[in-house]
Design a protein around this nucleic acid. Structure first.
Lengths: 151, 151
DNA sequence: ATGTATGCAAAACATTTGCACCTGG
DNA sequence: CCAGGTGCAAATGTTTTGCATACAT
């Protein structure tokens, strides 16, 4: 039992090496938080609080810097939903869009090839080279457990 | 020649009365700016500068307050494109999406019924009551006159 | 008149940056 | 050791708010 996980070769570590970022504690921890909450879409503040909760003493400025680097490296995606702060999620490489519940904040993801195709056609009709796109559907999830949370 | 336009019954005035907003000079002027630049998507700052340019002495805070009221009243739409500030445009009632040139900032609008329909299906599949949606395609317009402007 | 709207300045946020210190390779 | 990373505090940029004054109705 002298194989990995013994030291310095976790998933996070490899992800960081892969994109050429020095393996530092803040980067590893932030990446771990994002992996741990794959299904959520976190603000920089959310990540910061999660770090504090797990006992790490990492500054908010560093969280912003690291998230921005991760975005540049293609490790995470940044989204500008309504409501002030940007949210981040791990970029698994597969593009997807979002459907957001305005009552409880739940975010679900989807991909629709029909829509993707139409977008290419539309961009082309307008003479645009498409770089990327953002499609967000807003609505109410109507679930029993929808906490209708504050914000 | 004693009919309208003589006093207080311009398009703007009527629009404001219609939504139950008191007809004040700042509101009329801001609405006029937005009508004048139908094709553009203006930030609050843009509107503020346009007001100064036309000699009006209206505060930036008022511009924000008025735009927010207009949004609530359904007169304008607010969009959160990338890049810090929200942009506003007149809401003509007809929904449309956007295609944004990341080089020159040009914004074009489009509607695609196929996409609209797919969205309804998707929302339904996820058990959501759809409220609204935002679809933004980012790309390069590749035009000769694309000024490749700064921001 | 009188309740609401506006202007200005200050506050509130989200995000970025400068700089001295710390750390990973 | 040394370049690059981090923490903290201060700077920025955007949007909101408190309050005294001005204005529609």
């Amino acid at each position: 039992m002298a194989r990995m996980a013994a030291r310095g070769s976790s998933l996070e570590t490899n992800d960081l090496r892969k994109v050429g970022l020095k393996v530092t504690l803040p980067r590893v921890k932030i990446l771990a938080i994002l992996e741990e909450k794959q299904d959520l879409h976190l603000t920089a503040e959310d990540v910061y609080k999660a770090l504090l909760d797990s006992g790490e003493d990492i500054g908010l400025a560093t969280v912003y810097r690291v998230l921005t680097q991760f975005e540049a490296a293609g490790l995470v995606q940044r989204h500008n939903f309504e409501g002030g702060s940007a949210v981040f999620e791990l970029d698994d490489g597969a593009h997807h869009d979002h459907i957001v519940c305005q009552d409880c904040g739940r975010v679900e993801e989807f991909v629709d090839t029909t829509i993707e195709d139409r977008q290419k056609t539309i961009a082309s009709n307008h003479g645009f080279d498409i770089t990327t796109h953002a499609l967000i559907i807003y609505g109410s999830c109507r679930r029993e457990d929808c906490p209708h949370r504050e914000k």
